[in-house]
């Protein structure tokens, strides 16, 4: 019985992880306002503890990891963090295009 509970709990956790991942990818495609929301959240949230860091300070990949760290440390909602990542990466890409 205990093994069954552990298995069910593991399956639930895994399915939640997968669903979150898929939802994130779909959201980027479907939501053109994500970058605008991310810019607002970036401006409001980061300076709750420290100075705002410019998008060009890190690469796209580093921002993804760094903001996930901040999601945990500052208890930021996951959807807000995805918006912030979208904004930071879009800002970095604008810089490259120039």
């Amino acid at each position: 019985m205990k093994t069954l509970k552990i298995t069910l709990a593991t399956a639930l956790l895994t399915s939640l992880c997968f669903s979150t991942n898929v939802n994130a990818q779909e959201a980027v495609k479907k939501d053109p306002m994500q970058v605008a929301r991310g810019a607002k959240a970036w401006a409001q949230t980061c300076n709750r503890c420290h100075n705002i860091r410019a998008p060009k300070e890190l690469t796209d990949e580093e921002w993804e990891v760094s903001t996930t760290h901040m999601r945990v440390r500052a208890n930021l909602p996951g959807d807000m963090v995805k918006d912030i990542i979208a904004f930071l990466q879009a800002s970095n890409n604008e810089r490259i295009e120039k």
Binding site: L13, T20, P77
Partner: peptide, 11 residues
């Protein structure tokens, strides 16, 4: 950190 859900992380 297990990112279980947008609103839940297990540390």
């Amino acid at each position: 950190n297990f990112l279980v859900h947008d609103n839940l992380t297990i540390v």
